[in-house]
């Protein structure tokens, strides 16, 4: 599992709402704290990445958010502009604004055009060795396959031109499991589990990107072992309630209810987790590294939660 951080490019994806951004931020922070120069890039610019580091809003131009750690947000127009000025060496970048906008426009019809600019920028950072690791807070499971399969799609549609020339080296990076991997984030709930299993199959069938692992986020703590659970059930006895209510001056029923709520929720989720383990291995055609991140009982999200996620991921990598 430790080789996860040896990869140069990690796409973090998963169903909407499972905590992709938090996991991406934690992963990048962990890599940075282990001495790697890390870049983390938010592709769906919603601003949550900046919040994870309590940093000012991220831009296309990366900014440092922690020692060894830089953050940026993707902007396909800016990315194209950067690319064109590097490739075409146009004086004063004539007409680039229009071209960039046209690109966006064409991207409405042609598959892969917008995606290739996004993926291209990330691959370029890897190729130029600007960073030891690039963590991508990527698009959700519904869109990631289109993004990662963009170079092939472009190959099919565009016969000549600069864009076409670029797909070769990008595919080399994307297809190399030593360099690139996808990490799917899930929670132990029915819908995210189903979507994760489907995505594992689609990544394998439709892209050349290697599945680096699955992160199970928001795993609830196990309150009781088997013997403790028996004792817990015995607490339902009315005689127990009398003693507890006398000692606590009431309220024992609610406290036990809250514990029951947790036990029940965890049990339901344990089933989903089991389903996830089996389904992922089956869809991938072999074992897939699983990393478990506990549910964080925190007041709010920010640098503190990002650090805790980084610590949890770090512990998982050691195990």
């Amino acid at each position: 599992m430790a080789d996860l951080l040896d990869r140069k490019l990690l796409f973090v994806t998963g169903k909407g709402g499972v905590g992709k951004t938090t996991i991406s931020a934690g992963l990048a922070l962990m890599a940075a704290s282990r001495g790697k120069r890390a870049l983390v890039c938010e592709v769906d610019a919603k601003g949550d990445l900046a919040a994870s580091f309590e940093a000012p809003p991220t831009r296309f131009q990366e900014s440092q958010v922690a020692p060894n750690l830089w953050a940026m947000s993707m902007d396909s127009e800016a990315s194209l502009r950067q690319y064109l000025s590097l490739q075409l060496r146009l004086p004063r970048a004539a007409g680039l604004g229009v071209v960039a906008r046209m690109f966006d426009f064409v991207a409405s019809a042609a598959p892969g055009v917008r995606e290739i600019v996004t993926v291209g920028k990330l691959c370029w950072e890897v190729r130029e060795r600007h960073y030891d690791i690039v963590v991508v807070d990527a698009v959700a499971s519904g869109h990631i396959v289109g993004q990662l399969a963009a170079p092939q799609a472009i190959n099919g549609l565009v016969q000549v031109g600069l864009v076409r020339q670029q797909t070769g080296w990008m595919l080399d990076i994307l297809s190399d499991p030593a360099q690139t991997g996808a990490l799917i984030v899930s929670t132990p709930e029915e819908m995210p589990v189903t979507e994760t299993i489907e995505l594992v199959g689609r990544l394998r069938a439709e892209t050349t990107v290697d599945l680096a692992g699955v992160v199970v986020n928001r795993v609830l703590p196990e309150l009781f072992g088997t013997r403790e659970e028996q004792v817990f059930e015995a607490l339902a006895d009315p005689g127990v309630a009398d003693v507890l209510d006398r000692g606590l001056e009431g309220g024992s029923a609610a406290l036990l209810d809250a514990a029951r709520l947790m036990v029940r929720t965890r049990r339901a989720r344990a089933e989903h987790m089991e389903h996830l383990r089996r389904g992922v291995a089956e869809a991938a055609g072999g074992p897939v590294p699983m990393l478990y991140v506990p549910y964080l009982f925190l007041r709010s999200y920010g640098m503190r939660s990002t650090r805790q996620v980084a610590a949890a991921l770090s512990a998982e990598l050691e195990s």
């Binding site: 690109f103 019809a109 031109g161 600069l162």
Partner: peptide, 21 residues
């Protein structure tokens, strides 16, 4: 300049396909 850059980036065949559509 627009066409020049567009041709070089996307290739004229692709541009023509797009235009036709």
């Amino acid at each position: 300049p627009f066409y020049y850059v567009a041709d070089r980036v996307l290739g004229s065949q692709f541009l023509e396909d797009i235009a036709e559509f």
